[in-house]
Design a protein around this nucleic acid. Structure first.
Lengths: 146, 146
DNA sequence: GTTCTTATTGCAAATATTTGCATTTGCATC
DNA sequence: GATGCAAATGCAAATATTTGCAATAAGAAC
């Protein structure tokens, strides 16, 4: 999904109302590209349109993620990250020891997505993924320390 | 991992200090068995030992999850859930539309765990899983609505 | 058992997020 | 273009979680 009008149309077709707030938030997300926190988005939006409320930002982000227009990733440290969905989904491994975040090839997740659909008819929004664990380095460190 | 003393020994060996607070929090988790929020645990602990601080609870839970003694699951609605790790890991599918939570067979996750280890040497703490998406019912509803 | 070092705790304040309710406003219908 | 209704917003308060720092205490070394 890309292009502004496309998204707006999708929302309208799905029964959502297209409010100026929603449009502005979408624009902020698109201009940025990468990861943003709710606060980042709020700040950006506010810069131009000071009348927008923080809860509206949260509620809109929630709605956009339900519609798979953006992805939400909780990297486990403080705040959650938002980002426009891309045609090339990517995922994250988060080391619980050192906090490092690495990307995971989408191919590794696809089998899971398929088996969930087959077994439970559950349509997993797989881009919503953060996998916690231990990175290679920290495993080594632990091995030595003991 | 089970049995109180076993866990306490593990912590000590790993270099953590065994404080009364930590022991009490562990006991609360074990007595309960199922899912608990941080607040549940705090309340339980407080009932008997009113001097324990809320941040200590959060910090201890964090530590216990790093040590894989408990699991953390963010079901996306409000607060995070904690639970003693079991020998029979189980996971959750969370419907982003209706909020329903269903369990996922561990077998579906194992391949992912293996491929992460093989490809990235990342030791995924797989029990930490909540998979978001659309349940069967809500897919049907959406199909009809459009 | 005393001493020392450093991890852990408590506290208070900062931050992040959600929610109930009254008000406003898209947009479908006339 | 005016009207009506439900969805969305704003606001303020509730809730959930994290953090910096000074005080305390676990456990290693003596």
């Amino acid at each position: 999904m890309s292009g502004h009008t496309t998204i707006v149309n999708h929302l309208r077709r799905t029964g959502y109302r297209v409010t100026p707030q929603r449009v502005i938030i979408l624009e902020a997300l698109q201009r940025q590209g990468g990861h943003m926190t709710a606060e980042d988005i709020y700040a950006r939006v506010r810069a131009e349109h000071p009348y927008i409320n923080r809860s509206t930002v949260y509620r809109t982000l929630d709605m956009l993620s339900k519609e798979n227009i953006i992805t939400v990733t909780d990297l486990g440290k403080g705040s959650v990250h938002y980002e426009m969905s891309s045609d090339e989904p990517h995922h994250h491994m988060v080391c619980q020891q050192c906090g490092k975040v690495e990307e995971v090839d989408h191919a590794l997740l696809e089998p899971l997505q398929n088996s969930l659909l087959r077994k439970y008819k559950f349509k997993a929004n797989i881009e919503h993924f953060a996998i916690f664990g231990l990175c290679h380095k920290c495993q080594e460190k632990l091995r030595k320390a003991r």
